[in-house]
Each structure stands twice: as C-alpha cells, then as structure tokens.
Design a protein around this nucleic acid. Structure first.
Lengths: 350, 350
DNA sequence: TATAGGATTGGGAGCGCTTCCATTTCGTGC
DNA sequence: GCACGAAATGGAAGCGCTCCCAATCCTATA
C-alpha cells in the first residue's frame, strides 16, 4: 500500500538477502518468516504480510544454509555414465532423462547431472563429495559398475534404473528383460518358425544377458535347438548387419535382435541377400524406439515406456526422501509385445 | 602402525563424519584439522598425524557447511540452453562441453549442468536458486536470452561463451565472427570469384548476424554487389541444400555458408545440378568440424578450436572466482582460415 | 640464560537457516 | 468476565565448517 511507505523501508525495490532482513522488514521474527516460506503454521494476517514483503524483495533462500540446518536441499543427482557423444543420439537415454527431468521439475526438485566424461571412479568421487545432494538416480546397466556399487554402499539414498542380481535389495526401476525376451521369442515360434536365431546385446550388460536367457528359455520350452544360433552383437546397427549375415549362413527362419538398432541392421542384411521379410526370415527387435514403426517392413518389437521409467525412478527417489525409513521401492515396469509386419506377413500396417 | 592400535580408536576402519570427529581422533583442534585439509600452515608432524587419520577414515567435508562458512563450494554451473536432442549430436556443443569439463575436472572443481529441457525462465530460476554455486558459464548465442540477462544482472560471477553487443562489459570467450567471415569471403574473392553468395546461419543468433556483416564488409570492400545474394539458412544441412538451389538460380560462382553443416548441404545441391566444385562454384563453410576435411572435395572453412573455447571459459571463471575484484576477462580466441579443395581446385589435399 | 619474534595452535564467533521449546496471544465455554 | 486450551510466535540452539584472534610454543639471538 502506498500509505505504508513511511514505515522506514528504504526503497520500494527492497533487497533482502537473509531471513533476518525479511524479519526486520515485516516486524515478525525470523522463525515466523521461515514458517511462512516453508508452509508451516502461521496466522493468516501474518502470512499475508510476510508474503507481501516477499513479493517485492526478490529474496532467495540460501540453499547451503538450508541443507545444513535441515539436511534437505531439494537437489538430487542423476548419473548416466555414458559418453555424451553416444548418450543423446540414443533415444533410449534421452527418453529416460526426459522422464526424470520432467518429474523432478514438476515437483520443484533441482537436479545435478553427471555424464560419462570422466572415469567411473572420478564420477563416484564427485557425486559423494557433492554433499548437498539429497539423493541420486543412476542408470545401472552394466554388470560391473563401481559407481553403482559405491553409491549403494554409501548413505546417500539411491534409486537405480535397471539392476543387477546383486542389487536386489536396492530401490530400482527396471523391466523383466528375461520374460519379455521369452515372450517375443515365443511369438516367433508361434508363427511357425523353428530356427530362430538371436543377435545379443553387449555382453556384460544386464539387458544383454537377460535377453539371451529369456530367448533360451523360450527355445528350450518349445523343444527347439539354439546352441549355435546365438551370435554376439553390441546393440549397434553395425553389429546387427554382420551378425545377421552369420545367422543367414546357418539357415535361420527368424531372428530376434536384442534391440531395435541391431534389428534394423539385420533387416538390411536380409534384404540385401534377396530374402523376404517376413516370408523367408521373420525379425524382431526390442525397445520400440521411434524408427521401429517406420522400417520397411515395420518392426515387431517389445515396447518399454522409457519416459515412464524415468518418471517412475524420480518418483521412487522422492518417496524415499520423504520417508527415509520406508522399505526400498522396487518397480518392474510392464513391457508390451508390439507385433508388426516384420513377423506377420500380410497383416496390414498396424 | 599396528603398535598404535591401543590409542582408544574403536575399529581400524574408523568413520569420521565431521571435523570434530577427526579432531577427537587426532587429538588436535578442529581448526588445525581444517588447516591441514585446506593447505593452511601446520607443523609437519601435526600434518602427518592428521593425514594418517584422514587416510583410514574416508572423511568427506560437508560442502554445504563449507559454502556457508567460506562462501566457496568448488562447484560451478554450466548452462547450455539447447534442446538435448540437438545438443550432443552437434559437434559444436559437445566439443565446447568437453573443454569445460576437462579444465574444471583438472582443477578439482565440480560442475552442475543445465540443458535446455525447461523454459529459459525456469532455468534461470533454478540456477539462481542454487545458491551453492560459485559461478556460472553460459553459452550466449542468441540475441535475446533471459537466462544470460538474468545471470549478468545477478551477483553470481558469470562467464559467457559468445556474447552480444550488450554484453561487452561482461566476461566472455568468443571469436571475431565478423572478421573471420570477412576473411573467408575475401579469400573467395581473391581466387577470382565475383558473384559470391552467402547462406546465413539462424537469424537471431549472434554468429549468424555477425557472419552476414563480415561477408557484406568483404564484398563491399571489393566493390562487388551482394544485395540479392544472401539467402537465409539456419545452420542445418537441409537449409544449405535449399538455399544453394536458390543461389544457383541467381548464378553464383562461389558460396560462403555460415557453418560446415549447411556447406555440406550446399555441396550436395551443387553437385546434383551437375556443376563442378570448385571449378564452377567454389564453396566455404565455418567451424571446421570433423567431417569438413572428409567431404568431397574437402571443405574450405574457418577453424575455431572449440575445445579450447570451453577450457578458456572455465579458466576465466576460475580466475574470476580467485580474485573477485579483478576486471572482467574478455577473450577473443583466434580463428584460422583453412583452405581446402572446395575453393582451390587442383591443389592436392592439404 | 633470558627474551624477542615467528611459527603453531586452540577458542570462539558466525555463515543463514530450521526447529524445538517456552512464552504469549487469542478464542471459547462457563 | 474469567479460566482454559489451542494457536501463534519468538528465543535460542545447532547444522559443519572457516577464519580471526589471542594464547602458547619454539628457536635463535643477545
């Protein structure tokens, strides 16, 4: 109010740096100002008065002081230890990150990002040294990972995206790779294929290994032989190209690739060799990334809602922070078998 | 030493959470421990004793407390407000980031990364709210940028990568776009071309505008007409493709593109139209990214050492932090005209 | 053997905030 | 109009650290 301009406040655009400044400006105690800001109990009139001052003051709470006093900073760390050059072109990680940032932003939580431009040891050291973090989300995709080990061994609340056997007691968001791989392999068998090959993902990754296991399980259950039909790949298109060539030599009538990128590569090889998809060789991928539906023919694959994974991980971490005593939160996200023409000829585009 | 195991320390793998814990463990005061850790003066014997305890203790200083007490946290922010999907595929930004992280890591400084997955307003708010930052490096490439404005208007020490006219009193690392564009245009004129076209970068970016200005300056100085020879592009290959088509209609004998990506696009168009490079139309780009030397023919361009830019920005910020009183640090990085076959026929590959 | 002067050390204040607890204020029922 | 309990508020401690300053310890000099 203009009439109040005589209450000793210097200028209208007052600057208040600390709670004490605000306290002096409003005439209440620092404790009360703190309560208003943090949503504690306060008389309606007091609240209004403080908020008025707050509005014309551009006050920002000191995050360091906050963390020190309360143990909470409202900032979490996100560690995706993958070379930045590989990270963002890959729809897998960018969707994951998108989901995480979306949920955190919505909840007003800040985030610190670590990518793989240092050694894992250095990254771990940095993260643990950054003691104003409230917690961490980390992608745990490889079987050996000192950063994951280090974080789980620390007192910092941690949520994994993906998990190893050894991480079963931690909080994580993951999918059942084995069962999804089993399901898609079974699909290929169901449409009448008997010589189903598998192009693996990178050995040493959880997803890679588990998908092999799922594939084997399905083949064994169907009574089909597969011991020579597994060729190692590494999740890249290139590996799909060459692995498919090997498999064609062995005479397969279907190929399950550990992800969509390698499936795209396999597709190239098959068509280059003059064979038809799916008539001669059916093919299936994993992930259902953007381009999968636009391949020719559209690719049968396993859909995982990666953005949801990210959001779920963020949600899990915030819950953990809200109630440190609670049990670890383990979320297995659903996957969906998406059948397209690469495995079912004649069916019109979905 | 094993013989020392009787000095009352509970286990060998002692845990010390605070300086006071360490003080109790070593028998010196908290102040002394702090001095040893931070490289203050301490007697050699004391220093050794403290460090011994430090070694078997896995103590980590509390960054929040540090920031509160000293004002320094050893963490800086890096803001590259570009959509992550565009960011990392682009060698420009990834090299810049690489340089920044390299120098910061080497100096033991932590970093917090903000990418463009929120609105600029939200980003600004987050960064300013993150009060444990010691300073910020931000890429300032567009003419309008509320984040840059907000940071420069705050008390947070800030170093820009790139700069607008209005930022002339800030600290920045940049190149002289105008003069580099002038130089490369002049080069095209020198080899005898008189109808030199220009495919601009995104209008609204500093680099885009300044390169137009440099081009115009060179043309004007040579007494050549250019008013109809400027076609807008946006730094993408696609824009190079279509802009070049327009320019060919007008009958140019050389094209200067605002960056290498659009030059690659222009190259495609020219060759598709049956014209020879450089005999019929010479072509030049800007940046000297990886692929420029591998185009056919190799591309004449302006090299900027982007990794160096990043390192220089980090260095500038750390200097600023070390001596807050010092004048802003403005660095114009050198550029280098790299002449390859796209503008000089017959000359063997460099 | 004193003693000045430097090196080393410990005490303690204080960074800005949250939060417990005691005090004050208020609204209500009798 | 008074006592009572609940609501609102202020005082003060303390989070873990740095850094100033004063106290103590040496060492070299007279």
């Amino acid at each position: 109010m203009v009439g109040k301009a005589s209450d000793g406040v210097p200028r209208d655009e007052t600057v208040a740096r600390t709670l004490d400044d605000l306290a002096a400006l409003t005439g209440v105690s620092r404790a009360t100002v703190s309560r208003v800001i943090n949503g504690g109990t306060a008389a309606e009139a007091t609240r209004r008065r403080v908020q008025e001052v707050l509005a014309r003051t551009s006050y920002r709470p000191n995050a360091a002081a906050r963390k020190l006093a309360s143990g909470r900073s409202g900032v979490v760390g996100v560690v995706v230890h993958v070379d930045p050059h590989l990270l963002f072109p890959d729809p897998y990680f960018s969707q994951l990150l998108q989901g995480i940032t979306d949920h955190l932003a919505e909840q007003g939580t800040g985030m610190m990002l670590w990518l793989g431009n240092r050694t894992k040891e250095a990254t771990l050291d940095h993260v643990l040294g950054m003691s104003f973090l409230d917690g961490v989300i980390i992608s745990a995709h490889t079987l050996e990972d000192p950063v994951v080990d280090g974080l789980l061994g620390s007192t910092l609340p941690t949520v994994l995206i993906g998990h190893r056997r050894a991480d079963r007691s931690a909080s994580y968001v993951d999918i059942d790779n084995e069962q999804a791989a089993d399901a898609i392999t079974t699909h290929l068998i169901t449409i009448g294929r008997t010589r189903v090959g598998h192009v693996t993902g990178s050995r040493g990754t959880v997803a890679g290994e588990d998908r092999v296991t799922g594939y084997q399980r399905a083949m064994r259950r169907a009574g089909l032989r597969f011991d020579r039909l597994i060729v190692d790949g590494d999740f890249t298109r290139e590996s799909g190209v060459s692995a498919a060539a090997e498999l064609l030599e062995l005479g397969v009538d279907a190929i399950f690739c550990a992800n969509d990128a390698s499936a795209a590569g396999a597709l190239e090889t098959i068509r280059a060799s003059g064979l038809r998809v799916p008539e001669d060789v059916a093919i299936a991928g994993f992930d259902d990334v953007e381009f999968a539906a636009h391949l020719d023919p559209p690719l049968t694959t396993v859909r995982q809602a990666l953005r949801q994974h990210g959001m779920e991980a963020a949600r899990a971490l915030l819950q953990l922070l809200g109630d440190p005593g609670r049990a670890p939160r383990r979320v297995l996200m659903p996957t969906e078998l998406v059948i397209r023409q690469s495995s079912v000829g004649g069916v019109p585009h979905e």
